[in-house]
């Protein structure tokens, strides 16, 4: 599976977890390219390795074997601190349960990744304002997560993911905790970020309707990518 101008290049990727004496091979020899500006949905049954693959692409975990290049950077070779710095400037994360800091306002939550930059306080504030405007929540900037609906919280999380203008957004079940209407709003927003702002999105989902918003859907089963033909036949 290759596309031209790949942003993410995965070769022979394996991941084995050790639980005590037991070794669990979660991913087996994955090869995958994700093009710049692509919007990919990752589907598969529970335990198929979707989230593990997403975590590896986002630099949250290290592979047991194989390589992952993102924008030419072999991230599997980076140390913990270097990987953290790489994530800060290259990847935005959106989680199923939003994972906002409950004591901070929406704006302060969005500002969080910018604390790692040399931007001034006013510049951080301005950029956070722009990100919130982009997700349609300017008027909720001073609200805390507890004062927002699930859909609004997820949009704040998306604003936080894009505020440092990363190339890649990794989204783990972003609509898994939302009602249908809110899910549509969030997916539409993600589609806009992909289409209008050139963001590359990788989204794990169980929901085939959510996957329809992506350019293409990849299926994982027992740690292996399933070719489209096999999946269709199944």
């Amino acid at each position: 599976m290759r596309t031209m101008s790949a942003l993410v290049e995965i070769r022979n990727l394996s991941k084995i977890y050790e639980r005590g004496k037991q070794k669990i091979e979660v991913l087996h020899h994955i090869d995958l390219d994700i093009g710049r500006g692509d919007f990919v949905a990752l589907m598969g049954p529970s335990g198929s390795g979707k989230t593990t693959l997403l975590n590896l692409i986002g630099g949250l975990d290290s592979p047991t074997d194989g390589t992952i290049r993102v924008a030419g950077e072999p991230i599997e070779r980076l140390g913990e601190d270097a990987l953290a710095r790489w994530r800060a400037s290259n990847v935005g994360f959106v989680f199923q349960f939003y994972n906002l800091l409950p004591m901070l306002t929406a704006r302060r939550n969005v500002e969080l990744p910018l604390l790692l930059t040399r931007l001034s306080a006013s510049e951080r504030r301005r950029k956070a304002g722009i990100a919130l405007e982009l997700v349609g929540l300017s008027d909720r900037a001073s609200h805390r997560p507890g004062e927002l609906s699930g859909g609004q919280q997820q949009r704040v999380a998306i604003a936080r993911a894009i505020v440092s203008d990363p190339t890649l957004l990794v989204c783990d079940e972003p609509t898994g905790d939302l009602d249908r209407q809110s899910a549509i709003e969030v997916l539409t927003l993600m589609q806009e970020l992909n289409r209008d702002h050139g963001k590359t999105l990788v989204m794990v989902t169980h929901d085939p309707k959510a996957a329809e918003y992506a350019h293409r859907t990849l299926h994982l089963d027992k740690g292996t990518l399933v070719p489209d033909s096999e999946h269709s036949a199944a």
Partner: peptide
């Protein structure tokens, strides 16, 4: 713990 994990996710180093 989950909030600290989020900070690390978005790029805070372990030392931070």
């Amino acid at each position: 713990t989950p909030e600290l994990a989020v900070l690390k996710t978005i790029g805070f180093t372990s030392r931070s």
